[in-house]
Amino acid sequence: MKLTSLTLALSLAGAAAMAGEVAPKAVQYGEYGEVSASLTGVAGDAASGAVIAGTKSKGNCVACHQVSALADVPFHGEIGPSLDGAGDRWSEEELRGLVANAKMTFEGTMMPAFYKVDGFIRPGDAYTGDAGAEPLPPILTAQEIEDVVAFLATLKEE
């Protein structure tokens, strides 16, 4: 493939949802905020999810949560509950809903929605401080959400 068409193919993949992917606005939340269907149909990769959860430019979950499984990542926050044991407390469906949009489970929670693209006040262009045009890209992609969910499911108490 020529370089130009390769770039085009990549940018299309980035912009539009991949085939078979559930777009942010199409996600079906249940009564308690749970999401039953996988966002991609591809099983999540827990190892990749652990990296996403600990990476500042990705999930940055450790900004607010203590996670013993990520002890090698420096500085865990104290804003939300410890995620240790989250895999015991919540089902996969519930975890998917929590990561995609925790406000559907906990009304008014401080936890950001990682798979939401519009309805914001003064939406910005990532961390530039400039205005961003809605729909914004979601903070995490569908597969990244599935990976984080797979990682959370491994967090069991002893």
Binding site: G77, M110, P112, F120
Partner: peptide, 23 residues
């Protein structure tokens, strides 16, 4: 609560002062 993270000044400086947010 502004931006894609939907956070207000109060979320951090009224509800969570004294807590660590990352480092």
């Amino acid at each position: 609560r502004t931006g894609q993270l939907e956070l207000s000044c109060a979320n951090c400086h009224e509800d969570n002062y004294g807590n660590m947010i990352r480092a």
